[in-house]
Nucleic acid binder design. Sequence first.
DNA 1: GTCTATAAAAGGATAGAC
DNA 2: GTCTATCCTTTTATAGAC
Lengths: 227, 227
Amino acid sequence: MAKRAQVREPRRPPLVPPTKQQAILAAAHRVFVERGYGDTSMDAIANLAGVSKQTVYSHFNGKEALFSAIIKERCAQLLEFIPVEAATAAEPEETLRGLARRYLSLVLAPGNIEYFRVVIAECGRFPELAEAFYRAGPLQATNNLATLLAGMSRNGLLSVPDPEASARLFFGMLRGDLWMRRLLALGAEESNETVDRLVEQVVKTFLLAHCPTRSHIKLDGTRASVD
Amino acid sequence: MAKRAQVREPRRPPLVPPTKQQAILAAAHRVFVERGYGDTSMDAIANLAGVSKQTVYSHFNGKEALFSAIIKERCAQLLEFIPVEAATAAEPEETLRGLARRYLSLVLAPGNIEYFRVVIAECGRFPELAEAFYRAGPLQATNNLATLLAGMSRNGLLSVPDPEASARLFFGMLRGDLWMRRLLALGAEESNETVDRLVEQVVKTFLLAHCPTRSHIKLDGTRASVD
DNA sequence: GTCTATAAAAGGATAGAC
DNA sequence: GTCTATCCTTTTATAGAC
């Protein structure tokens, strides 16, 4: 552990001395995601940050620059939190289940839902932010899973002719109706049990479609009958 | 048919005489979905509609009422256009393929993507509109497919223990990554071929998971190994 | 850097004539 | 119902003192 105070602490500032800049960024993040870009005023940000409006302008060039800053900040966070599964050679079922759970808890987290909402809402005004977000979040997750699936396919654990397409299918199934409902702010009251059932259904469906013992059924897009 | 003019038509106004009210609604729809609620001004709507601002206020109580009107209007349209498949007893594969194609063309249509975006953006300010949209669109589609699947399950064509869950899974797979990219306004340049491949992959995956000859594999959420 | 005060513009809503 | 002109609030952004 870190060493304790030697005699006695004279008087400490808050644990993480929040600079004005940090306070502004935090306040901006909250107001932007809660009320949207159009309805957020620089006054509201300054008030919540506990600084004057001019201080906000001395740190950021304007409303657009501030918005851009908070979006890119969260993009960097996403890059760290995207689930990366060790390319384990162990049982695919358990690996996918774990990955599914962590992915769902990530994309359904209220903070990330709000964040997604505002990026969608402003993708017309800030197309480069929408692209940055997609790369840092969904694309990153898809690529990670595709790599994992390709490894499993080489090991003969699964049959995955197109890892990226299969990865997109996996995450698409997981988000599904639940994610859309959250985007619309409709009933976040789903029980953990509901989420668990979804995970099981998705994992089972995915494994059935990529089971190596039934690899004679091609899922590469060409038409083929089921038996 | 309606009876024709008896002698000759004297002089007709445009085929559908656009009333001021219709012009306002059309203009409001366009501006709201293009620029979002917060950045839409009543001036912009009045100008695009070719009327004065006061005329707008004489037809609608204010900005919120106008927004509410155009959202509900589109909800009513959705209710008519949601694909309803005749509860055919024919081959499930072809039925699902057709349904998938029409569902995708509906949810990926640029007008509907814009519409979805603005409903998501304003779900905090207009929660009742988000709910109305969900009922008229996604929920309606899910219920229709669930009914269809339940019928197929009764006929022994498929094994669908939980029709609603399976319907949500089907549409979730279809939307997937493609729909998210469209919501973010990223590259609507996917070829028809890409969409067709997705449809095939989804239909095949869905059928594999609900194949009656493998109904011993339960997909109701309880854990079960694959073979 | 930080604050108070203010400029300059835009937007929602209304008044009153026709 | 429709228009022109106007009110009043909010908002972005800046000036100038400390």
